[in-house]
Nucleic acid binder design. Structure first.
Lengths: 228, 228
DNA sequence: ATTTGAAAGATTGTTGACAATCTACAATCA
DNA sequence: TGATTGTAGATTGTCAACAATCTTTCAAAT
């Protein structure tokens, strides 16, 4: 990826875009929790800008599903209910299925190489029960696969859906160390299907992988929650 | 669907949201053509508001893919290239496939009834070569199917993708009367699969239907364009 | 004790003005 | 003639003030 020069960075980003990205970072990073209210004046003051750019950023975030706006009441970090999460998982499964199908058809050798390396590192994280590292690698695995599918629109829509599901994870305070062993087997099978160029298989494996992870999440939530 | 009272309508819509919807209407209606520049002051003046709400609407429309923003240059109605359209069609195919799968599982009798009625009207429009009416009915057909799938997120993402494809249609000035007979057969087969509850078949038929329509569009574009 | 109502404070919605940037065109020089 | 520089106008980016709405508080009445 090309490194953007600092001059372009300042020339192509308005304050509104910078505010948008900063809020996105704080929401997805858990700093701003689902349901919490976003005060225009506070945020403007904190970031050293006026309320205008903040309001513009709010509109963009609202459209991308990260916040919800109530007129004359304010904007809030979006809360994703169990029912919504189920719906979103289904859509994600369909997108992942397409990603598998296309990746199997279009992936390039060097991309496959890097994904295999990620899976290998996932094994290591799994053995050392490093849930944090495993989670990050899992995200990288799916994102690299999305890239390999060679469809910008698909990658973009996929990322948005994943962001929305992240809100649900945040809300339910999911951990998930108990699922690591199962996931690793899935990922190996997926990589092999993609490597073979078996579109149908890759599609089905990825679709099922997402649906399974949804079921695992529900089962984990049904159990009594443990402290962080 | 519940009819919103006028009081709620004014209480829940800010000027920015109204501007957003108005611009969306003009873009999708072809009044504002792909590539054309949207001047803040002009729009604000025309709609009788200040530039603030217009700018907020721009941010929302940018995020939803209907416009493109260039810093210090302005916002333009998005132009969708052939390559992008191909990508978008693939994503739409995946979403339609899921719609078919879910609709086959969840559709209710009265929903099926209404969709059959739409198909019947499509036949009539086809016989009288009324392309305008046929196009509107085709949109209704797919939208009702999306509703029957019973997944709000899916319906929402589907609508956005369709809007983006509409930009492409606008740009290429597609007509398409020549494809009506083929489409009607597709639609009948789809309804039957959904009615039977055959998830796999409905999924495949809808996926292929979208891919086919993409191919038909490309073939039509390859031919010499006719005057409107 | 609960509820109703009004006033004060806080927050959002909207506007108009100012600053920064871009575009178009004319004047200047090689 | 052609390229370049500079200036004027137009357009976008940002800000601060004003208006409208909501929330909170507290007192009064039932």
């Amino acid at each position: 990826m090309a490194t953007p020069t600092p001059i372009d960075l300042l020339q192509q980003n308005s304050l509104a875009m910078l505010v948008q990205r900063e809020l996105e970072r704080r929401i997805l990073g858990g700093e701003l929790k689902p349901g919490s209210k976003l005060n225009e004046a506070d945020i403007a003051g904190t970031l050293g800008v006026s309320r205008g750019p903040v309001r513009e950023a709010f509109r963009a975030l609202d459209q991308s599903g990260l916040v919800r706006t109530e007129k004359n009441r304010g904007v809030f970090v979006r809360q994703v209910s169990l029912e919504e999460a189920n719906d979103i998982y289904e859509v994600r499964a369909a997108l992942e299925g397409l990603i598998g199908r296309l990746a199997a058809k279009r992936i390039r050798p060097e991309q496959l190489e890097k994904i295999r390396a990620v899976v290998k590192r996932m094994h290591a994280a799994s053995r050392s029960l490093d849930a944090e590292a495993y989670y990050a690698l899992n995200v990288e695995f799916h994102d690299r696969l999305a890239t390999a599918a060679g469809n910008r629109t698909l990658h973009d829509k996929y990322r948005r859906i994943v962001n929305e599901l992240d809100l649900y994870r945040r809300e339910t305070l999911m951990r998930g160390a108990e699922n690591i062993p199962l996931s690793t087997r899935d990922h190996e099978a997926i990589v092999n299907a993609v490597a073979k160029g078996d579109e149908k298989l890759a599609e089905r494996l990825l679709f099922d992988h997402v649906i399974d992870s949804r079921e695992r999440l529900h089962k984990a939530l049904a159990r009594p929650a443990r402290a962080a």
